[in-house]
Design a binder for these strands. Structure first.
Length: 848
RNA sequence: GGGCCGUUAGCUCAGUUGGUUAGAGCGCUUGCAUGACGCGCAAGAGGCCGGGGGUUCGAAUCCCUCACGGCCCACCA
């Protein structure tokens, strides 16, 4: 036995030992001298660095790592970076708490800033560049934690290739790309109705909306027709009656057909609004008559646009009702005094209070008919927000996305078809999304933190800002922060002055930067040579819930810049659910299921084994049983390898020759072929499902059958054991990197993870056919002998005095070819055969 | 409201283009100290393949329908 084979192999300590060695040896460092055709590149998702990584992360990142390791062994130079997403609200909160600061873009940069630290009662406002610097500082600290976990998990990431989403490089790429789109008119600014979060006081994009069920009520309210009659509507938003600009009914609705075009008067405010027809009005709902406000929901926006209605806005950015002067232009009323008196009751109030007061007023005036009917209905929220969204009108930046452009939409759908999805059905989600786009992508956010829109605007002598003539930064100045940097041709004291300039106050949607992840990590702006080696990428692994954001936007940006897909394949992971069938979330951070505990208890190979059971797109159960099985498998590999290696080197000229050995290699060839095909189809789970049974059958049947020959130094047996072991280790290496590397080191040079993936060709010694009957037939006969012993409750080494094998002629021939192996393994004395269509074995055991 | 995925032994999952008595591992039961492994080895029990229709000589596999679980999308007054 090689001296390096331990007496008692163990999994303990393998993670530390080998992850350190891989790092030291640069085993996974990307070699950029390789040609593009020899590169396999991955657009790794950057986990957000604000919280804890949970077992779900471990699962999906393992999937990617298994894939990366496979392609590396296939001879590809794998570009496998890691990112940190620090451009998020979660990070803002954490930075704020950790350093005791808030971000105030109006402040100048302070080079000597000393943040007060945690537990500060009064948070200190700091400039945006200072805040970003603190963010990078925190990220650096948290990165270590993430790095440790990923390293223990055995991710074969090249740690020289990392990126963040708020750091200097990301900002430079993000601003550079924005300016390019601005040049081409693909990015544009517009004053328009915007989905608005009143808590954060920022616009948000369609892709970041979600519905939440909320309590509400239908209020039946009377409007007054031209003839002084009642026109009843149902509304859940009575506080928006002052913002009402029309009533709408379905064009075919007999109740209102004759009255389209009529002027109607609103209750309390006595404003004149038209009664109009539009097919989106549903005759089945309420009274069939709807109040159109600017703006209560997205349908209002549609009606407002398509019916060419005026704007009468009452919503302030903070969710309170704006002050309004009734009787002024745009606020005409038949009784301005009464209107003002009513409105003053609600002005300045938050939506909820305003609604309450408005209902009281309507009740007093007699315009509310009956009691409000409570309902539960879906309401739109920003996914990061806690209060319902409003729609207000203001200036925003947009990027075209196909929502208002059929050609672009078609192009985006074509990319969806071209992309190889794993699993394929995830394509449907993408198509649903693209087909459902209702407008362009609003990329501007009115948040203090983020990548700034890199523009300034001139201010004329009257103090008016010319929003349509943005001042651009010099390309080499990027990244810039217009809140502290001064535009070309101006001086700092001209900021916010007549004749001077203003900085664009907005930052970009975080997706506007992360959608450039291939460009950021690949060196699009600052390392074109690298970019040429990795783009378009081979793989985008990601979660299904961000198909509409990250995936879609990345395809969009790639289309604009390169007119190509950013990657050929997308692997969409499912989520992990706990034993109660609930989705594992971050809050489970300290649960027993946290990754650190599980890794300590079962080892990385075991956790990876469990993860490997989750196919792309399929949800995975957190099942400790699978960890246990994975651990046993890893231990078994150590022990089986020890066995196979204990006989020393086979002779130089040894080749597999014995029928049983050839049969084993034939079965192995089949296994290799099937596993390879599965891997090529991104079905690592299926690959494992082929490899694992082969390995167990190798241990339980072949090894038992070959033992005697192995102990006596039979060259064919020894050669077969070594060849098979080498192959098995390489097949398992992507899944179980630690135990396979450990065994590899006992008898091979270099890393198993840089060894070539097994092929049929290298197993061609003694034939190149597929699995034949020999192994199965002999294993069956051995099993029958074992059964006889088990049923007699005797030990497996109990001698069989006489055995009769009844089988078909063909199978008897197969068994005979390995008869001596069978006799040794079964401890059989006299062995005879009978042809029979009804297979059986009779065994006469030595008396106890 | 539209769409997608799933429903196979107690548990976690396989079941290729429909083909003889439906598979694996774990768990369970019963045994076994055999010179790699007792974190081992051997054997055994255990399924009307979610329900109901249909196509077929034959269906877990194809079609229809329903139920349940989960997810995505939606203009939700």
């Amino acid at each position: 036995m090689p001296a390096s084979v331990p007496e008692k192999p163990s999994l303990e300590g393998l993670e530390e030992k080998w992850s350190a060695r891989w790092r030291r040896d640069g085993t996974f460092v990307f070699d950029r001298s390789k040609a593009r055709a020899d590169v396999y590149s991955i657009d790794t998702p950057p986990p957000t660095v604000s919280g804890e990584l949970h077992i779900g992360h471990c699962c999906s990142y393992t999937h990617t790592d298994i894939t990366a390791r496979y392609w590396r062994m296939r001879g590809k130079e794998v570009f496998y970076p890691m990112g940190w997403d620090d451009n998020s609200l979660n990070v803002v909160r954490r930075v704020s708490v950790n350093y005791g600061v808030t971000c105030d873009p109006h402040l100048p940069f302070d080079a000597g800033l000393e943040p007060p630290g945690p537990n500060t009662k009064q948070k200190v406002p700091v400039s945006r560049p200072n805040f970003v610097a603190l963010c990078e500082q925190l990220t650096t600290e948290l990165e270590q934690k993430y790095f440790d976990l990923w390293t223990t998990m055995g991710l074969s990431v090249d740690w020289d290739q990392t990126y963040t989403t708020i750091g200097g490089r990301a900002q430079r790429v993000s601003q550079h790309a924005f300016l390019r789109l601005l040049d081409r008119g693909i990015a544009y600014t517009q004053d328009a109705p915007t989905v608005w979060d009143v808590e954060y006081k920022t616009a948000v994009a369609q892709a970041e909306l979600e519905d939440r069920e909320l309590d509400g009520a239908y209020h039946r309210v009377a409007f007054t027709g031209a003839a002084g009659d009642d026109l009843l509507i149902d509304t859940t938003r009575p506080e928006l009656i002052p913002a009402c600009v029309a009533l709408v009914a379905h064009p075919g609705d007999a109740r209102y057909k004759s009255r389209f075009g009529e002027t109607v008067t609103t209750p309390l405010f006595r404003a004149s609004v038209p009664l109009r027809a539009h097919p989106l009005a549903d005759p089945e709902k309420g009274t069939g008559l709807v109040m159109v406000c600017t703006f209560g929901d997205m349908t209002d926006v549609t009606w407002w646009r398509e019916l060419d209605l005026p704007v009468r806005s009452v919503m302030a950015p903070d969710g309170r009702l704006l002050p309004v002067t009734w009787g002024a232009p745009g606020w005409e009323s038949a009784d301005a005094g009464a209107a003002q008196a009513a409105y003053d009751e609600v002005a300045g109030k938050h939506v909820k209070q305003a609604q309450k007061r408005m209902v009281e007023l309507l009740r007093e005036s007699g315009d509310l008919r009956g009691d409000p009917k409570p309902i539960r209905h879906p309401v739109k929220f920003w996914e990061n927000g806690t209060r319902p969204l409003e729609i207000i009108t203001n200036r925003q930046w947009f990027i075209r996305n196909g929502g208002r452009d059929d050609d672009l939409r078609e192009a985006m759908l074509r990319y969806g078809k071209e992309l190889r999805w794993h699993p394929d059905f995830m394509r449907v989600r993408y198509e649903n999304w693209v087909n459902g786009l209702t407008g362009d992508w609003n990329i501007s956010r009115q948040l203090p933190f983020g990548v700034p829109i890199p523009l300034w605007y001139p201010v004329d002598e009257n103090g008016e800002v010319d929003w349509d003539s943005p001042i651009r930064p010099e390309p080499e100045a990027l990244p810039v922060d217009p809140s502290t940097h001064v535009p070309p041709g101006y001086t700092a004291d001209q900021r916010d002055r007549p004749g001077g300039f203003v900085g664009d106050p907005n930052v970009m949607d975080t997706w506007a930067t992360s959608s450039l992840s291939p460009q950021i990590v690949g060196g699009w702006v600052d390392d074109p040579e690298l970019f040429e080696k990795v783009f378009p990428y081979d793989l985008r692994p990601q979660a299904h819930e961000i198909i509409r954001t990250w995936l879609f936007y990345t395809v969009l940006r790639s289309h604009f810049e390169f007119e190509s897909l950013p990657w050929s394949d997308a692997a969409i992971s499912g989520f992990v659910y706990d034993p109660d069938r609930k989705k594992i979330s971050k809050s489970a951070g300290n649960a027993p299921e946290n990754p650190t505990n599980l890794l300590a208890e079962y080892g990385a190979d075991a956790v990876r084994y469990w993860a490997a059971g989750g196919r792309p797109g399929q949800d995975t159960a957190l099942d400790r049983n699978q960890f246990k099985i994975g651990r046993r498998l890893a231990i078994k590999i150590l022990n089986a390898s020890r066995f196979a290696l204990q006989f020393g080197e086979p002779p130089e000229d040894a080749v597999p020759a014995a029928p049983l050995d050839l049969a084993l290699l034939a079965a192995l060839r089949t296994t290799v072929a099937e596993a390879t095909a599965a891997f090529d189809d991104y079905d690592y789970t299926k690959a494992l499902e082929r490899i694992e049974p082969f390995f167990w059958s190798f241990c339980d049947d072949y090894v038992e059958l070959v033992k005697q020959r192995a102990y006596s130094g039979d060259a064919s047996a020894l050669a077969t054991l070594r060849t098979t072991l080498s192959t098995i280790l390489r097949l398992f290496a992507p899944f179980l990197p630690y135990c396979t590397e450990e065994v590899w080191s006992w008898w091979q040079d270099g890393s198993v993870h840089r060894a070539p993936w097994p092929s049929r060709d290298e197993l061609a010694a003694g034939g190149d056919g597929d699995a034949d009957e020999t192994l199965a037939a002999v294993a069956w006969a051995l099993g029958e002998l074992r059964r006889a012993k088990t049923e007699a409750k005797r030990s497996m080494k109990t001698p069989v005095v006489r055995a009769v094998v009844r089988e078909t002629a063909e199978r008897i021939a197969a068994i005979r070819s390995a008869e001596s192996d069978l006799r040794e393994a079964g401890v059989v004395g006299e062995l005879t055969y009978e042809e029979s269509p009804d297979p059986s074995v009779t065994a006469e055991l030595e008396p106890a």
